[in-house]
Structure formats: C-alpha cells, structure tokens
Design a protein around this nucleic acid. Sequence first.
DNA 1: CGTTTTACTATACAACCGTATAACAGTGGG
DNA 2: CCCACTGTTATACGGTTGTATAGTAAAACG
Lengths: 203, 203
Amino acid sequence: MTTMTKKAAAPKFERIAPDERRARLIAASIACLAKGGIQGFTVDNICHEAGTSRGLITHHFGSKNALLAAAYASIYGKVLDNLDRAETTPQSIDELVDMMFADSFLSRDYLNVWLALWGEIAVNPVLQVEHRKNYALYRERIARAISAFARGQGVTVDSYDVATIVISLVDGLWLEQCIDQSLLSLDRAKDLCRRTLTAVLSA
Amino acid sequence: MTTMTKKAAAPKFERIAPDERRARLIAASIACLAKGGIQGFTVDNICHEAGTSRGLITHHFGSKNALLAAAYASIYGKVLDNLDRAETTPQSIDELVDMMFADSFLSRDYLNVWLALWGEIAVNPVLQVEHRKNYALYRERIARAISAFARGQGVTVDSYDVATIVISLVDGLWLEQCIDQSLLSLDRAKDLCRRTLTAVLSA
DNA sequence: CGTTTTACTATACAACCGTATAACAGTGGG
DNA sequence: CCCACTGTTATACGGTTGTATAGTAAAACG
C-alpha cells in the first residue's frame, strides 16, 4: 500500500535482446567452469551467476548441453579471432612464441575452463563435434604461420608436424601451470617453448 | 520350500579382505572415469561397476572424494612403478621416447581417465595435494633419466628444463590423441617426440 | 559351539539435478 | 490504446546425488 503510488513501478526484470542474453549466459557459464570445473556447470550455478531465473537456459539454448557447446565455441572463437587479428607473419621466434601464448594472459581461471572442457570433450559427442571443427582451424593457422616464418628464414619444414609439436607443447605447459601454478611461470613457459622451437626449426 | 534342503545355504554376499575390496572399488572407479569422465564418477555407477552395494565406499574410504584421491594415487603409482621397473638408463633417444610412452599402451580409456582427473585437480584441493606429490616424483625420475642419458652422450643439459619440455609435450600429445584419436597415432606421437628430443638435446 | 567383530546390505534422507509447464510482464505494431 | 508476441519468472516434476543410519550375515576367536 505504502508504495502504491503510480511511480513508473520499477520493472520486475530486465528484458534484453536474445543475443545479448545469450552472451551473458555464456559468460556466466565460463565463470562457473572456472570456479568449479565441469561439476560446477549446473543450471542453478549458471543462472545465479548470470542473475536470471532457471528457465532461460532452456529458452535460449534448448538445453544445458547446447549451452556448453555454445560456450566452447565462444572461447575457441575468441582464440581464432585473436590469431587473425595478429598483424602479419611472425618475423622472429619470439614473435612466434608470443603468438602461441597470446591467449594465456586471460589468467588461470581461463585455463581452468579449458581443462574442464577438455575432460568433457572426450565423453561428450556434441562437444567433440565443436572441438574438431575449431581445432582444425586452429592448427591450420598455426601451421601457416610456421610455414611462412620458416620460408622467411630459408628453412623448409613440415609445418603440420611442427605445428602439432608446438601446440602440444603449449597445451602441456598450460596443463602443468594450470594444475600447479607454483611449478611454472608464464615467462619460463615461453622460454621453454622458444628453446624447443629454435631447436626443432634448426634441425 | 523346494530348495529348503540344508545345503550350505549359498552366501548372500562375498566377504573379502578390506585391501582387496578397496582395490576393486578403485578399479571400478577408474572404469567409471574412463566411461563417463568425472561426471560418471558417481556412487551409484562405481558400486554397480564393482558389484557391491552403495554403502561400501563410505565404509572403506570415508567419502567419495577420498576414493577419488585413492584412485589417482593408484594410477600415478603404477606409472612410477613402471618407470622404476624400467631397466637401466636409456642408451638412445628411442629408448628415452619409449620410456616416456611406456604407459600409453593402456589405451584410450586410460587416457580419458587422466583427462577427467586433470580437469578435477584444478578445482579439488584433495586431488591437488595428491598430484603435487606424485608429479614431483615423476619429473624427478624423468629428469634423472635425461641427465644420465645426456652424460652418456657427452652433452650437458639442464635436465629439469628438458624434462619439463618432454613431459609437457607428451601430455599435450596425449591430450590431442585422447580428444580426437583420428588426428594422431601412437607411432606419430612417438615420432614427433623423438624429433623434438633430438633437436633439443643437440642444441 | 557361543560370542564378538566387522564387512556388508538395504534404506532413508535432504539436497540438488535438468527440463517441462504455466503464468506473468515488458515491448512493439496496429 | 489495445493486442499479439515473446522474454522472463516461478514452480512442479521425477530422477539422481552423497552420506548417515540401522540391521544382517559371515568369519574369527575363545
């Protein structure tokens, strides 16, 4: 009664464009994955993190699993975008290494998300499809950069092999740093990567 | 009535030594992790896989999480044992590589277990402790093998750096093979590892 | 053979899981 | 200004979660 004056009656919820809402739910999903791994990826957690009610996941994505796939696509998309945005072909080993680690600035939380997703990919067909698509693009780009760089140096390499080595190495280093950050700093990881790349490319 | 003859009255359950029962529950846990990742690691799944009732996990381990830690310890213990059992110091790059991949014969299922556990380590303090302990021992042993091998070749290296590189590379290669087995065969993984090791050790 | 111990089963429990459903409310078109 | 549309909430649902509890049964000990 007391507040019953006709004063614009504060809206009971925020109504925003579907795309924007989807983006927020994806962001919340990533936050949940970072905090609690795949087990933290629950409807309750996500919607609480996003500040919405539980119904929106179904409404905007159809299912929780579809949201997971969308989140994965979003993350990988950002990585690929960063790779595309990177200027030209790397002119030095250092630039090549920086390119490989361009996304790791996103901190430990971000790495935990990858780890959580990787564990799920192996047992989740929908994620598997999403992964395959993106990984192929990723390796393609890394291989191209390596190929261009090697050509500039007058060296010939099987760029796909080298790309696989470097990607695996970086993933492995991330893994270690992510699991126990006292073992490895970003600088040391870059250093080890540089060292390996130098050796492999000059062999 | 018909079967009411006093014929030793088949026992209603199998009563075995606690150690043996724990081992079986751990084996069942690993099977569940392989099949469904960390989300497949549930009391119901594990006990059904082990052929027991649900009460035994609490009885023998105290909690599900303690069982998970025990399973991780068991897996890592097997890896370390295999490493110890390996003859002497590797005499060639090939032997070194074989040593690194000695456990991967345990197939894709086995790799899925690692992946599931890795994703959990980052967010599970109990697993984190277990991991740190075992990883230190693992790297120690790999570094020692590399050091001994390098000495035999008359090369001097920072064996810990090289160990970190190799372990990361192998983990990364496992990762890829595990996520999408169409990308990488064991032979090719070994080959890439051999190539990297050769390059790094001769630099 | 009777007693004690404890491995084991069965069940109960509250909390949480993902999704389906219905009602509500903000927005744009007429 | 009213209506249709749909983004949003609230709730209900059956099923599953991990653990605590109570009772059963098998083996060990005297």
